[in-house]
Simulated scan of single mutants.
Amino acid sequence: MSLRLVIFDVDGTLVDSQGDIALAMHHAFTELGAPVPETAAIRSIIGLSLDVAMARLAPALTPRDHGALVEAYKRSYMSLRAEAGAAQSSPLFPGTREMLTALGARDDLLLGVATGKSRRGLDKLIEGHGLEGVFVTHQVADHHPSKPHPAMVLAALAEAGVGPADAVMIGDTSYDMEMARAAKVATIGVPWGYHPVADLRADHVLAGWDDLPARLAELWEVPA
């Protein structure tokens, strides 16, 4: 039996973190005295590494200003998370825990994450939701170029010992899908995240987590 790897994006796919992301962005831009981006613009950059995100949100500012925005954002986001707790700050989407439990119990699947979060941010989130030991590979922004560069997926494949044909990327943004395609990995989109479904151009789009076993079975031609 071949082992297959299911790689998940985090923000907008597993957890709904847009509220604190938008508020932390508002605080960061206000602290710097820069115009606060529209909510739609903030949603559009979720998933990118912070340095790339700030450059897209404020292209007229200098790299030094972008760095200041990143640091201000981190301070604000950590403060919001500490105040509410990671589980409350970034709640799991409905059915996510049950889905992870069911997939994690399968002998033929390995689970991983590839996220624009920092290592510290991901560790806090996993701890807050009690998801320790669920994922065999954790790819974070600290160690890779920003999505859609394929480095995260390629590293996940290497760590899991799985080839591209035996892996799938699940995410909510075009960055996730482009990253996976660049690594020659199949894609599954979710419609509850932060990019319009039409922009994803995913191989499959879920209606809900209940659809996932059937989509995986179709992908690899195995029983659901």
Rank of each mutant, 00 (worst) to 15 (best):
R120N: 14
P148E: 11
G161C: 13
L206V: 04
H149N: 10
T187Q: 06
S174E: 13
V113W: 01
H144D: 08
M179V: 11
V52F: 06
L80H: 05
A141K: 01
R81Y: 10
T39K: 14
A224K: 10
T101V: 15
H129C: 09
L216P: 01
G116F: 06
A58T: 06
A155G: 06
A60F: 10
L200W: 08
A202W: 05
R106W: 10
L69T: 05
M54N: 07
L125E: 02
M25E: 10
H144P: 03
R106Y: 08
G121C: 07
A186N: 05
D123S: 15
L219G: 08
D203G: 13
H138Q: 15
G47W: 02
M179G: 00
A28Y: 00
L219H: 07
T13G: 04
R4S: 00
L80S: 08
G121L: 01
S76Q: 09
L3M: 15
L5S: 03
A24Y: 03
L50T: 11
R43N: 11
G33F: 09
E83H: 14
T137N: 03
D176Y: 03
T187P: 06
T115H: 08
E159L: 12
D9K: 00
Q139I: 09
L14H: 04
L14E: 01
S44M: 07
G116S: 12
Y73A: 03
D199Q: 15
M169F: 04
S2Y: 13
P191V: 07
V113D: 02
K147V: 13
T39M: 12
